[in-house]
Every structure is written in C-alpha cells, then in structure tokens.
C-alpha cells in the first residue's frame, strides 16, 4: 500500500484536481463579492427582499466557517497521521470514543442550529407580516404558459407585464387556471406558487425603478422554460398614467390595421383573445387590448418588435414549442402582414 517515490501519472491528475478545486473556492469567494446579473437574488430591490438578503449573508458565512473548521481538521488528520515510508507497522491506540468530546460536538451543532433558527424566524416575522392596508392589490393568474394580470381596484386587465409604483407596498394574489406555477421576480422577492383551487399571497415594497425579470419557477409542462414575465417599477405618476391608458378600450384602427382587425375577428384569434372595444372577447389567451405598449410578447420571451410579432403570428410553435396558440388553418402571408399591423397598432 506504500506510495512509491516516483511521480506516477495519476499524481498529475491529482495536481490538476487540487488546482481545479482551488479555482472553485476562489470563484466562490469572488462570488461573495457577487456579480450583478439580471435575475440574481443578491441585489434586492425591495424591502422584504432586502430582509431575505440580510439573512443570506450570515447563513452563508456560517456554512463557510463550519466547512473550514471541519475540513481543516480532516485535512490536518490526513497529513499528520498518514503512513509514511519510514513508519513501522505498529498499531495506533485503539480509541473507541471520548464522551466529553462527543458532548462538545453534539452541543456545537446544536448552538449553530439555534442561531440559524433565530435568524430565520426573525426574517420570517418581517416578510410574512401582513401588508400595509394601502397596498396595491394585483391579482395574477397563471396559465400554461403566460400570466394574466388584474388590478381589481382599478378595473385593469393585462398580461405578462406588471406595472407597479415605487415605494408603495404591492400585494399579489396568486391563482392558477390550470396547473401549479410559481411567481418569481428574484430582484424583488422570493417565489410563491400559484396553486389551482386556492389563492396564495405575497407582498413587498419596491425600492428602485426599473424593468425586472420574472420567470415561472415550478415545472408546468412543455413550455415551462419560456413562461417569463416582466415587472416595471415606475414613479407614482407614470404608474397612474399607465393605469389610465390600460383602462381605455382599444384605439380606432385605420388602413392595414383596420383590415387586420377585421381578420382578427373573422379568424380563430377571436376565440381566445380579448380586445376590449371589439367583438373579440375570448379568455383563453392573453388580453391584447394594449399589447403594443408592452416591451415583450409571447410570455416575456420576445422583444416587442415588428419582426418578432410577425414571426410569432406566422409560426409561434417554432419560437415557443408546445404553446397553446394553435391555428386551425394556416395564415397566408398577407393575413400575417395585416394581423401584424393590427397588433402593432394596439397601443
């Protein structure tokens, strides 16, 4: 079992291995300096999310410290007590245990657990408290694979893009129309599932304006990966203007857009979509009354550009496989052009 004096090839592998692990550790430490990425949970932009973040740091460091202690003991033992070439074959003392030591390392993790629990419960008390009474109510209904958004107190219905004002608590009522989804905007708050048959809630007060990414976090079938959405945090004024605009019916159409509008109602589109102010009152797909004002389409996956809208109408299945917008008959190029014009005009 002795190691030979030569340097066998596997030692190179070991060297590479240790270097790689060193690199991971270095990267980890760098990771604690944390990179600001679009969907990171490390740069919170709401009060409750800040509370969660304040829990993240101590628990992480606690884990790092425990790892260093235990792993340090292990590595020390390996190097200190390793059999060397010049050892005799004597048998080390056969120690079966040590009650005092074992009590110590029963108590040590117990104390750590108590600390972690206290920290956890403190944070829970903050984020699971009742929202302030003046909180903005937003009802979100999950669908395969898009989000229906209601502002019950403002008579507004939209989809996939949620506008909320800065510095005012927002209270989400989460429901599902089909299977379980999960509502998650990492910069703003932890996730909460949308359960069919019941209503879940979550709340927070956003603290910085911006466009935030959200994503369904519970596997919900074929197009789960493409069930995204956006949250726009804006000033009180901008938000009120937006609400105002959303309440209005669709604008009057002229030219190609008007032809597209006629097509929309005469084709299958109308069975699923609502466009207020027209004959389209379907409820299976997203409300499109002001779709042209959204930054993204198709459940938050495509920027709202003429090209994307055109492609989406023409061949949504290749852009988002499995999505439920299935047309009974194929649209002609001309139909697609007119419908695109209509959609783009739904300001």
């Amino acid at each position: 079992m002795r190691l030979t004096g030569h340097a066998p090839a596997w030692r190179l592998a070991r060297m590479a291995g240790l270097v790689a692990i060193g690199a991971v550790v270095a990267a980890f430490l760098a990771g604690c300096g944390a990179v600001d990425t679009p969907q990171t949970m490390l740069f919170p932009r709401s009060d409750n999310n800040q509370a969660i973040n304040d829990l993240y740091a101590p628990l992480t460091w606690l884990a790092v410290v425990i790892f260093i202690i235990v792993q340090g003991l292990l590595v020390y033992s390996i190097f200190r007590f390793r059999v060397r070439d010049d050892d005799d074959d004597s048998i080390p003392p056969q120690i079966h245990g040590n009650t005092r030591l074992e009590i110590v390392w029963t108590l040590a993790p117990s104390i750590v657990v108590v600390i972690m629990l206290i920290l956890t419960y403190q944070t829970m008390a903050v984020i699971e408290a009742d929202p302030p009474p003046d909180a903005l109510r937003v009802r979100v209904v999950g669908h395969q694979w898009w989000w229906e958004v209601h502002y019950p107190d403002h008579d507004v219905v939209t989809a996939n893009e949620i506008h909320i004002p800065i510095d005012r608590a927002v209270y989400f009522e989460l429901e599902s129309n089909d299977v379980i989804h999960s509502f998650w905007v990492p910069r703003l708050m932890g996730k909460r599932d949308l359960m069919p048959g019941s209503t879940n809630t979550i709340w927070f007060t956003p603290s910085e304006e911006g466009l935030y990414l959200g994503q369904c976090a519970e596997y919900c079938g074929t197009a789960h990966a493409q069930m995204r959405f956006h949250v726009v945090v804006e000033s009180e004024t901008a938000f009120n203007n937006w609400l105002e605009r959303q309440r209005e019916p669709a604008v009057e159409m002229t030219g190609d857009a008007a032809e597209g509008a006629a097509l929309f109602v005469s084709r299958a589109c109308v069975t699923c979509h609502t466009i207020r102010g027209t004959d389209a009152i379907g409820t299976i797909g997203p409300d499109l009354t002001h779709v042209a004002r959204r930054s993204y389409i198709a459940g938050g996956i495509l920027e709202n550009t003429p090209g994307n809208v055109r492609n989406w109408i023409g061949d949504s299945q290749s852009l988002k496989p499995g999505n439920l917008m299935v047309l009974p008959v194929e649209l002609s190029e001309e139909d697609i052009r007119l419908l695109t014009a209509y959609i783009l005009a739904l300001k």
Binding site: L55, L119, T123, I127
Partner: peptide, 8 residues
Amino acid sequence: AAVPLDLH
C-alpha cells in the same frame, strides 16, 4: 431550510 432563503 431557512424559509426566507428557500423562497429564492
């Protein structure tokens, strides 16, 4: 197991 972190 820390509930708030698990929400993320």
